[in-house]
Computed example of a mutant assay.
Amino acid sequence: MGPIRAFRSIGNSFGLAWWARIETNNPATTYWFGPFLTKRSLKAKMKLFLNDLSGEGIGSINHSYVRCRRVEPLTF
């Protein structure tokens, strides 16, 4: 495990990691994208993730940025 990944894991275990919560309506799914050390780094990667979802023909997509602790599952 590299140092960045270790810091992300530690940050997540303490609830300090940044995550994106992405909700779609067709299909009705909630995705969690993260963890990230900073909100800035999360926002930088979000566009690629949202483009991937759009490319799959997903309906409307809403997202929010959350600082929290997450564990599996990351898709509902």
Rank of each mutant, 00 (worst) to 15 (best):
F36S: 12
N62D: 07
E56P: 02
R8K: 13
W18H: 07
F49K: 15
N62K: 14
V66K: 11
F14P: 06
G59I: 02
A17T: 00
G59Y: 05
I4L: 09
S54L: 07
A44L: 14
A28H: 11
L16W: 15
I22M: 05
L42G: 09
F14Q: 14
A20R: 10
I58L: 01
L16A: 15
K45H: 09
R67G: 03
E23M: 09
L16G: 02
L37K: 10
K47G: 02
F49M: 08
K43L: 15
G59F: 10
Y31L: 06
G34F: 10
F33G: 06
N25I: 05
W19D: 11
T29K: 13
V66M: 12
Y65L: 08
R21S: 06
K47R: 11
E23H: 10
K45F: 03
K45Y: 14
I58F: 06
F7I: 12
N51C: 01
A44G: 04
F7T: 03
E56F: 10
Y31G: 01
G59Q: 08
G55Y: 01
D52P: 00
L48M: 05
I22F: 08
W19T: 11
S13R: 12
A44T: 10
Y31R: 01
L42K: 11
T24F: 09
A44M: 06
L50R: 12
K47N: 09
F33N: 01
W32P: 09
R40N: 07
K45Q: 11
A20Q: 10
R67N: 09
M46V: 07
A6G: 04
G55N: 04
H63S: 14
T29A: 06
K39P: 00
S60Q: 12
L50S: 05
A17M: 00
S64L: 09
I22L: 03
S54R: 14
G55H: 00
R67W: 05
S41L: 14
W32V: 10
T29H: 07
N62S: 06
S9A: 11
F36K: 11
E23L: 04
D52H: 13
R69E: 02
R8E: 14
L53T: 07
I58W: 01
S64P: 00
R67I: 03
R8D: 00
T29D: 05
F33Q: 09
G11L: 10
W19S: 04
K43I: 04
H63K: 04
F7Q: 15
S41T: 15
R69N: 10
S13E: 11
K45A: 10
S9Q: 06
M46S: 13
G15P: 04
A6Q: 15
Y31Q: 00
P3N: 11
G2F: 05
S64Q: 08
W32L: 13
I22T: 04
C68K: 08
M46F: 12
Y65M: 09
G11Q: 08
T38R: 10
T29N: 03
P3A: 07
S9M: 12
T29E: 13
K43V: 04
R69C: 04
